[in-house]
Amino acid sequence: MNTTFKLATAAAVVLTISACASKPEPVEQVQEQAPVEVAEPAPAPAPVQAEPTAPAGPLAGSLEDFRVNVGERVYFDLNGYRLDVDDQEILKRQAAWLSSYPGVRIIVAGNCDERGTREYNLALGERRASIVKDYLVSLGVDPSRIDTISYGKERPIAAGSDEQAWALNRNGFTQIISGATTS
């Protein structure tokens, strides 16, 4: 804030000097006016925004709530497309959350690691996305609320080229399209 103030003042001075090089008198007047205009509205909103949101945690029904408290990805084995117990737990939480927020629409993306060829991985990603969708539907989520897409190996979330990165990149990613609580 101080910096902005000084820069604004300096800028005002420079502008005035260059604009009115032949008439030095008005410099001081402008210098007094400029800081008042710039500095006054700026400090007000900053503390208001920062204080209430930070300690409260994600707002119920928000994107952040879904990401943090439910879990948005399930992870697949190498070349696999079956859901293990951990995956099923996450999807049960997703289904429960979706039933609490019936206005939410989602898209499930199927992702693969880089150790496969592009076209086969597009098909495998589609299969993974469909498996996730089918499971959510079996838990009572209306299929019309769920879209699917395959990114094959085109959307890695881990940039590495090792077992750990590949394991993270083989996932089904449930993303909220619309209907989440925003404020």
Binding site: L122, A123, E126, R127, S130, I131, S150
Partner: peptide
């Protein structure tokens, strides 16, 4: 419906081969 990918022309250029995937089946 679903996605289409893996296109390739037929040799005479009159057709395109492609894959369609939906519901986990390609």
């Amino acid at each position: 419906p679903g996605m289409t990918f893996a296109p390739r022309f037929s040799r005479d250029g009159e057709s395109v081969l492609m894959t369609q995937a939906q519901g986990g089946n390609s």
